[in-house]
Every structure is written in structure tokens, then in C-alpha cells.
């Protein structure tokens, strides 16, 4: 005869990722490295904003982890700037997770770094559920995505510390209202810092650089 047995498990499978994220964070703290996660939809300007920060903040030792379907493309752009870069091919996965990031962190010379930018896969939905262990989460959103896109994707903005509304120089051409977007972001998360920039024209990029510097200096 066959015996039917019941096993009570009660295991939160998402807790494993949170624990790994915590371990990533502890590793980074041991070497006094600040990690900044950059999320956002495809084409919002994540890679460009990281490139600009790496070029501007010459006083800091910077590295980049590039998560993408074919990571070598973005990773190549970072490597051209002469900064240590680790590509993470996510393939069909729609988000980075703490496990993948832990492998990338292993490859970086933590004791020789001050800042690591972690660029997530282009996606406004899935990354919300997966903490990576970064000290700050930044979401980049472009005015070209439709100015209701923030209202449509509250989860990822809720978990962020900074929202960067990008490409404001062409807002008029796509009938987008950056102010409305900023309001939507603040409504979803009253403690969110919101800035409006144009990576292309350079408009208000100083506020992006200031956020990064503050994130690093406040932890020293």
C-alpha cells in the first residue's frame, strides 16, 4: 500500500532573494562601497546617465554591473570609459536578482572602489519584486513613455529613493507633462526624490550627480 503524507513547509520563496540581497549589502559595506541600482524601461536613458556620472565624478572610483538580455552591448559602453565592468546576461529573465548580482560583485575589486552602478534590465514591472542589495534604487523614466507611465507602475517607484524624469527637452514633441509625472511619483511615494533632466542637453544633470555624491558621502 502507498502511504499519503503531508509535509508542512511554510517557506517564502521570495525571502531567499531578500536574504541574498542583505548579504550583498553586507559585503559592500565591509569595503565601504556604495551600490546604486538603476532601473527603468527600455530606452529610458539608464546607460547614458551612468556613463555621464562615470565621466563627471572623477574623484570617485567607479565600476558598473550591466544586466541585460545581451549585456555585452551596455557593458561595452562602460568598459570604453575605462571603468571595471561586469556584464550579466539575463537572457529571457526580465529582471536581475540578488543571486546574479552576488556573482558580479565577486568579480569586482571592492577594496579599490567607491561606487558600483548596477544597471537593471529594461523593465518597469519585474525589478520591483527583486532587491539586489544596493544602497539606493533609482528609477529612470523618459517623457516619451507617456506621461501616465509613473501612475501605471507604482510598485517600482514605491521601492525607490530617486526618480529621474529624462528627455524633458522633447516633452513638447510627445505631448508629455513632466510636472504631472513628478506629481504622480510623489503621490505614490512621498519620500521619493524626483528630478527632471535631459541627458542629451545636459539640463539639470547636476542634480543627478548631487544625488550620487550625497549617497556616497552620507555613508562615510
Amino acid at each position: 500500500m502507498h502511504k499519503v503524507a503531508e509535509i508542512e513547509v511554510q517557506e517564502d520563496l521570495l525571502a531567499a532573494n531578500r536574504e541574498l540581497a542583505q548579504r550583498n549589502r553586507e559585503l559592500l559595506d565591509e569595503s565601504s562601497v556604495v551600490a546604486i541600482e538603476v532601473s527603468g524601461a527600455i530606452g529610458s536613458g539608464k546607460t547614458t546617465l551612468i556613463e555621464l556620472a562615470a565621466k563627471e565624478l572623477k574623484d570617485y572610483r567607479i565600476a558598473a554591473i550591466a544586466g541585460d538580455v545581451v549585456a555585452s552591448l551596455d557593458a561595452g559602453r562602460f568598459a570604453k570609459l575605462g571603468i571595471p565592468t561586469v556584464p550579466l546576461n539575463t537572457g529571457k529573465e526580465c529582471h536581475l536578482d540578488a543571486h546574479l548580482v552576488s556573482h558580479a560583485i565577486e568579480k569586482l575589486p571592492l577594496d579599490e572602489l567607491d561606487i558600483i552602478f548596477i544597471e537593471n534590465v529594461g523593465n518597469l514591472i519585474c525589478p520591483a519584486d527583486f532587491e539586489l542589495g544596493a544602497h539606493a534604487r533609482v528609477v529612470v523614466v523618459s517623457v516619451t513613455e507617456g506621461d501616465d507611465t509613473i501612475a501605471k507602475h507604482p510598485a517600482v517607484f514605491r521601492k525607490a529613493q530617486l526618480a529621474v524624469i529624462n528627455k524633458v527637452d522633447i516633452a513638447a514633441y510627445v505631448d508629455a507633462d513632466p510636472e504631472r509625472m513628478a506629481e504622480d511619483a510623489r503621490k505614490i511615494n512621498p519620500s521619493l526624490e524626483v528630478i527632471q533632466v535631459s541627458a542629451k542637453t545636459g539640463h539639470n544633470l547636476q542634480s543627478w550627480f548631487n544625488f550620487i555624491v550625497k549617497a556616497v558621502e552620507s555613508r562615510r
Partner: peptide
């Protein structure tokens, strides 16, 4: 509301030729 909980499993013990 943020959980993905594996609560319980019901199995047939033995070599599985149930």
C-alpha cells in the same frame, strides 16, 4: 501581500508506482 509561500506538499510515499 509580497509573499510567495510554499505552504505544504501532499505526497505518496514509496517508489512512486501508485
Amino acid at each position: 501581500g509580497e509573499e510567495l509561500l510554499l505552504e505544504r506538499l501532499k505526497l505518496v510515499e514509496g517508489d512512486g508506482d501508485a
